[in-house]
């Protein structure tokens, strides 16, 4: 265990590629602290100007939904077709609604 303590923790990296877009998960890296994680993310994931803003999150702090629950979580939205605009038939005369 004591040896593991020297290993830098894993951070998940999210990058905003340009103003107006949301941050998107791009991968992970190792860093000793949050500041270093930002620096490393800059060096690793924005070498080709891929970003204007970075979020880093300790990987162990992320809570994810379980795939086992996916039917219960996502399938009930299947039959709510009226949430989509194509559900509604409009006269041809009505454009752009």
């Amino acid at each position: 265990m004591s040896e593991k303590k020297n290993n830098w923790p894993l951070w998940e990296v999210f990058i905003r590629s340009r103003q107006g877009l949301g941050h998107r998960h791009v991968g992970s890296l190792h860093a000793a602290d949050a500041e270093m994680a930002i620096g490393n993310a800059r060096d690793v994931y924005t070498r080709r100007q891929e970003g204007v803003s970075i979020w880093v999150v300790p990987a162990e702090e992320i809570t994810a939904s379980s795939p086992d629950d996916s039917e219960a979580l996502y399938d009930p939205a299947n039959d709510k077709v009226y949430r989509h605009p194509t559900f509604f038939d409009l006269p041809d005369e009505v454009n752009h609604m």
Binding site: K5, N6, N7, W8, A32, D33, M36
Partner: peptide, 9 residues
């Protein structure tokens, strides 16, 4: 070096 960074953090 890796150890030092962890100790500092």
């Amino acid at each position: 070096v890796r150890k030092a960074a962890m100790a500092y953090a």
